[in-house]
Write a protein that binds this DNA or RNA. Structure first.
Lengths: 198, 198, 198, 198
DNA sequence: TATGAATGAGCATTCATTCAT
DNA sequence: TATGAATGAATGCTCATTCAT
């Protein structure tokens, strides 16, 4: 929300937010092939204005993805200070899924962008802290890592999205199932070692 | 002469198979934006030939998706005859995920095609039978339906795909977690009723 | 004129010629920034058709430049068989300048194209033969090389083009001056050694 | 206050010079398609500032071209006062070509600008005086006019520029050849009458 | 049926120029 | 005067689809 590098003029800052919002909506509606023209139209600015804010379509996508990572990091850090480790992890997954559900942008990738990589690592770290606390409290299996949970964030929304005509809250069902799968009820080892993080 | 729907000439039938195979490979390699030109090149035919077999790109995608549903249906029906209900369900999910992993075509959608809808319903039915048997045997929660499992088919591969540099077998870890989530260990009710199927 | 690689269908070959002609005219009229759209319009075809004949604007330019080199090579080789070495060289420069004058495309460059490089080398070789014969006959200075004359081909037209409102034949005046500069009247050495050819 | 045309503030005058210098460099480096944005960047000012000094890109080009004409005029007038008429003409062409070679802006045209036309006429007049003196001294043919030499100014650099990998001083070779072509050694008449000047 | 060619609609991106501050 | 921002008009290029043979 609050950027540090260059204090934009008020009108430009407004247009930037307008554009990011329009882009999210357009990507959610039309997929990754949403056109810059449509995004500009939706934001009520000229096509060229998009490029005066983001040097390329890739950079626009990176800004969106980065923002989402940053928002989730804020959520994770806030929940780290709560009393109940189990509720904290569960609430994080719920809030995350809820945010994703609003606009499914799961398909957006921005891998080669260093800022996004950094923000993704920040989120990974915050999630790992949440998981460490939950594991220490015995509410998740000993084998479960922060990376596991990081990868699972989008799963409930994605699963519900496979239904051709689902209730908007269906993802909650699959989140509960997955969360139960993380619990230390079963002693069996998982068939693969925990994934490393680059 | 013997087959019912459309008696294709032998070489035409061969071209059709060539095209479907080429299209799958190209979609797997380049994503949904793979071009008809590249598919035709890979199949060794002219671009226009693609359109003499499939009226549009959508129809080509529908054919691929339909084939995948049909293959999974075969797997599900075969496993219905096996002795162990738990192993049958687990094996189905494993074989399905394995096939998807080979060529991740999860992103392909073909919603408005009636043949695809029919094949999808066939798969849904076969999976439901598998789940009914598993539930009756007490290896999955009473609340779990065939629709649930149908929706979960792609999840393990999708989850592992969120890792920037994952082991090719990582999906097995998440499949085990999800399968554990389906088990009747926990008594708590799931937060959402089972989804209906259209 | 007669290409070897792939025998185009009659209509395609016609469109190709139409496009090359239109492109030459458009480049001559608007300079190197002539647009593909205008070229296509002038040729009476769709924009995309340009790209079905030439993969890029660069390739179209290369085709034009290559054709011009090839045509000049034909002229040079023909004159090599004529009786008078002085007239042969002079006529070559005249015919070349005349062809260039029709459409000043001096500004077109296609350096990185291997076919063009080859055709340019062919022309260089043919011109060198013409110059060798003229030198042997004592009608040009001993120091003058084929490379010198190759570089001088465009000069008369370019010089006349610096006049804001010149007679269309003014280039002949500067060709005569330059040709006189090549004659062995003066014994003084030229201030720079003859240029090498890559 | 003291100067007549437009009393610029000191910093504005400085920006103007900065911009002209930056524009020359950028045009020399990137050709006529050098962008206003790059020029402004190089000058260290905002894009819009360019337009507060020059109403359009054309006008900026006209200013550069006009400056070059004016500089050459100074050179020609200075050499008019030298003792040797032949050396004066030769030196003029050498100094001119040298300046052009440093930054080849030959491609810049600014025809419809009245100030440029005036400066070009000034140069034409100064060159004509140089040529008249040389002709009177018998060092150039009787037929050669100031207009001829004016048109020939850029030729040596242009000719050397046709070589794909030339020595930076190669233009001197062609200047010598052309200058020899101007000498009164040959009695033959040139094939075209001297061009008039508008 | 198979195909070489043609094409209309569209896309990301650029740029000279204008505007408000 | 200087500038950050905005923009309309182009531009090279792509692609699914159509057409004539």
């Amino acid at each position: 929300m609050i950027s540090s590098a260059r204090p934009l003029r008020a009108d430009a800052a407004r247009n930037r937010e307008l554009l990011l919002a329009a882009a999210e909506e357009e990507f959610a509606a039309r997929g990754i092939d949403a056109s810059i023209a449509d995004i500009a139209d939706r934001a009520g600015v000229a096509k060229a204005t998009v490029f005066s804010h983001f040097a390329s379509k890739e950079e626009l996508i990176a800004a969106i993805v980065g923002n989402h990572f940053a928002e989730l990091t804020v959520v994770a850090r806030r929940l780290l200070t709560s009393a109940d480790p189990e509720a904290a992890l569960s609430d994080f997954l719920t809030e995350a899924a809820h945010g994703i559900k609003q606009q499914d942008l799961t398909f957006l990738r921005a891998d080669d962008d260093s800022r996004v990589t950094e923000l993704r690592n920040d989120l990974h770290e915050a999630v790992s802290a949440l998981v460490d606390r939950a594991r220490a409290a015995g509410v998740v299996r000993a084998e479960i890592t922060g990376t596991d949970v990081f990868l699972l964030i989008c799963a409930p929304v994605h699963i519900a999205g496979c239904h051709p005509d689902a209730d908007p809250d269906l993802w909650r069902r699959y989140q509960a199932i997955i969360f139960d799968g993380l619990r230390p009820t079963r002693a069996e080892l998982l068939p693969q070692p925990p994934p490393s993080w680059p």
